[in-house]
Amino acid sequence: MMTELEHDLRRLAPVSDPLPDVSEPAAAAQLLDVAYATLDSPLGRLLLATTPTGLARLAYLDYEGEDAVLEHLATTLSPRILAAPRRLDEPRRELDEYFAGARRSFEVPLDWRLTRGFARRVLQATAKIPFGATATYKQMAAEAGSPRASRAAGNALGSNPIPIVVPCHRILHSGGGLGGYTGGIERKRLLLGVEGYGGLKRPEAYSGLKQP
């Protein structure tokens, strides 16, 4: 049985809106190990995650769910993860400029902790391929020290934790085929289009991911 007093205590309980920010005091106390933000892009919705070292993760959210990406970061980097959009201002700005055709290379520092060994070497070599250029899987395998490991290089590129910024889309088959892309081949086509690669769609032709 609930008395009138109990009823009033519930009914008149304090409301709170808006809530104070936690992410900035957390960062100031050096307790924010992973800060993340989401943004819309011509390639769909993206999640960006940074550590104090640098950008560690870029995920296509319609390909991998937000919860899955965050869970994975919690187990691999640190569970001290907070949404902190301001911490991602710099990479977000660079990506916006890139998609607008006003930027050809990324300057944000990277955190490579989600990569290791051969894969890390392949991806770090890939990060050096300039805007508008392409390379082959075979070349990247050689760059990473194993000229015959093209297939392993392909797997390494497929596991790229920071696509777009680490331009795995610039790696093609020796025969000229596009090869694969984690997140869908149409994204690779669109990214190469942004960079004016041979007869593919130019940036102004973008309309999301509708084209096959």
């Binding site: 809530l19 970061l73 187990t75 569970p79 993860i81 902790r113 989600l114 596991s159 934790p161």
Partner: peptide
Amino acid sequence: MAARNVSSAVRLPPFQTLLDAHGR
């Protein structure tokens, strides 16, 4: 992708999920 496990004993969810669930 490969990476080391930070905590082996307890699987802790991303802290943001606690804040979302209980902040208010």
